[in-house]
């Protein structure tokens, strides 16, 4: 297996549990430079747990995580952010009492360079509504706007790998399209993305490759187009027979 330049993320045989209940039972996957990789699966399959384990906020019991060729599975969360892996978590996890601007500034918490201001402008250019509401508290934004803010905040960390957990959850179709377009634009700008979605059609529609997670194990993997036309995937996740 090629290392270094080719792989941003390599996960091998990852196990994680809540108490005695195993949630991840030997997950292996890889994300290559410049890819958008979709991770689909039903509720409770372990998608969110996997992303949290990657970010270091969910303990793992065994397995390996390599990021840019180096082991990171023993590093605390902030060291992983520092190396260039950021996450927009599921469910509008913004800092409610803080302003939109402060939320974005905190996304760059680990950065010491002088380009934080410019990057904030870039986020505002991507989601103009956030610029309009920059001085308002994040808790007062609509669901879609909070989702944009969570995404923008993750981008403020200058990620090499961006982990997105259900960015389209609970959004109107127009907003879903806007978020998906943003992800495509991110890919074009060179950011590698691991996208977790229940909305499999949407995710596979913009992804290069995909993984199907079922009860803590990778059940299926392949090119996004191939998965989209796979009868098993269609039956289980695309709502068609």
């Amino acid at each position: 297996m090629a290392r270094g330049g080719l792989h941003v993320l390599e996960v091998s045989n990852l196990h994680s549990a809540y108490g005695r209940i195993g949630v991840l039972k030997g997950v292996s996957l890889e994300v290559r430079t410049g890819e958008v990789v979709a991770l689909i699966g039903s509720n409770g399959a372990g998608k969110t747990t996997l992303l949290r384990a990657l970010s270091g906020v969910q303990p793992i019991s065994s397995g390996e995580i390599r990021f840019l060729g180096a082991r990171i599975d023993r590093l605390p969360p902030h060291r992983r952010v520092e190396r260039g892996m950021t996450q927009a978590p599921e469910g509008r996890q913004v800092f409610g009492p803080l302003s939109v601007e402060d939320n974005l500034r905190l996304g760059a918490y680990m950065r010491r360079d002088g380009e934080i201001e410019q990057d904030r402008e870039r986020v505002f250019a991507m989601f103009p509504v956030l610029r309009e509401k920059r001085h308002l508290v994040a808790g007062g934004l609509s669901g879609g706007q909070q989702q944009m803010l969570a995404l923008g905040r993750a981008l403020m960390g200058k990620p090499k790998l961006l982990l997105l957990d259900e960015p389209s959850l609970g959004l109107s179709p127009i907003l879903v399209d806007q978020i998906l377009a943003a992800i495509v634009a991110l890919k074009a700008s060179g950011i590698t993305v691991l996208l977790v979605e229940q909305n499999a059609t949407a995710a596979l529609g913009i992804a290069d490759r995909g993984y199907v997670l079922e009860t803590g194990r990778i059940a299926l993997t392949g090119a996004a187009a191939a998965l989209l036309s796979d009868p098993k995937v269609k039956a289980a996740y695309l709502g068609a027979d």
């Binding site: 970010s55 270091g56 906020v57 969360p77 902030h78 952010v81 520092e82 950021t86 996450q87 978590p89 996890q93 913004v94 800092f95 905190l106 996304g107 918490y109 680990m110 969570a150 905040r153 993750a154 960390g157």
Partner: peptide, 8 residues
């Protein structure tokens, strides 16, 4: 959770 995810 969000605080840990931004690196705090």
């Amino acid at each position: 959770l969000a605080a840990r995810l931004v690196g705090i």
